[in-house]
Amino acid sequence: MATKTKTKKITDDMIISMYMDYVLEHEVVPKSVYKFCKINDIDEAVFYENFGSVEGIQKSIWSKFYTNTKSLIEKNKEYDSFSNKDKMLTFFYSFFELLTLNRSYVLFALPSDRTVLKNMEQLKELRRHVKAFSAELIEDGNSTKSLKITKHNPRLFSEGAWLQFLFILKFWMDDGSAGFEKTDVAIEKSINTIFDVFDNTPLDNIIDFGKFLFKEKFV
């Protein structure tokens, strides 16, 4: 059995699956690449062909969550015709559906303190992806506006979208509602708010969003 495993082509997705199974079964991060490879019966050289460290796997998992979500939503033939707001909503809904399928791992991997999430090393690649996606949406919207004064700053918008993402991530982690329906509400209100801010009509939705946060004790 060991010979068959070692001659089998090992992919990065397979190593990620091995890692996720390992941490959920042992409730601890592997202390070394050597021990991780020995338990999973793979050569260290094969591991290093795909990742430079255990930390590299952690980052890649979040990057895979993003790319898999993006691939899924782009398969929708109607996606290209969506408004930018609806594209963002579709992304967030789909991303958190994927996280729900991997909830046990996410809850293991992330701290409960939302302020810590902002600087987590394993989220850096995801942050880059989310900001690039958000900036692309706002740049697309700017391309349809002739007046410079009505155009929006992609860098500012993308940073706001990332902060909204972190808020929703923490909300989802703490959400005990059936089917995580409260997270769906939070996504809708949050995305509506950030787009309204950039459309210069923020007041009603910001108040609505604030009431929601107060009710759920997140402010």
Rank of each mutant, 00 (worst) to 15 (best):
M1T: 15
A2T: 11
A2I: 10
A2P: 10
K4W: 04
T5I: 11
K6H: 01
K8D: 05
I10Q: 06
I10V: 13
D12E: 09
I15T: 11
I15P: 15
M20D: 07
V23N: 04
H26Y: 01
H26I: 04
V28N: 09
V29F: 06
P30R: 05
V33I: 15
F36N: 10
C37V: 06
C37F: 01
I39A: 08
I39M: 05
I42H: 04
Y48L: 09
F51V: 02
G52P: 12
I57G: 05
Q58L: 03
W62T: 06
S63I: 07
Y66M: 00
T69L: 10
S71G: 05
K77Q: 08
K77S: 15
E78H: 04
Y79M: 00
K85Y: 03
L89Y: 07
T90C: 03
T90W: 00
T90A: 01
F92M: 09
N102E: 11
R103Y: 10
L107E: 15
A109Q: 05
P111T: 15
S112G: 13
D113F: 07
R114F: 09
K118E: 13
E121Q: 04
E125H: 05
N142H: 02
N142A: 02
T144E: 12
K145H: 10
L147G: 11
K148V: 15
K148R: 09
I149Q: 15
T150E: 15
K151C: 14
K151T: 13
H152D: 09
H152F: 02
P154V: 01
R155E: 11
R155Q: 13
R155V: 13
F157R: 08
E159P: 03
E159R: 07
E159M: 07
G160F: 07
G160N: 12
L163M: 12
F165M: 02
F167K: 00
I168K: 00
F171C: 00
W172C: 05
W172Y: 03
D174T: 10
D174E: 14
E181F: 04
K182N: 12
D184V: 08
E188T: 05
I191P: 14
F195C: 06
V197L: 14
F198A: 00
F198S: 01
N200C: 06
T201H: 06
T201K: 08
L203E: 08
D204V: 15
N205K: 02
F209A: 03
G210V: 00
K211T: 09
K211H: 13
F214Y: 12
F214I: 12
K215F: 08
K215Y: 11
K217Q: 11
K217M: 09
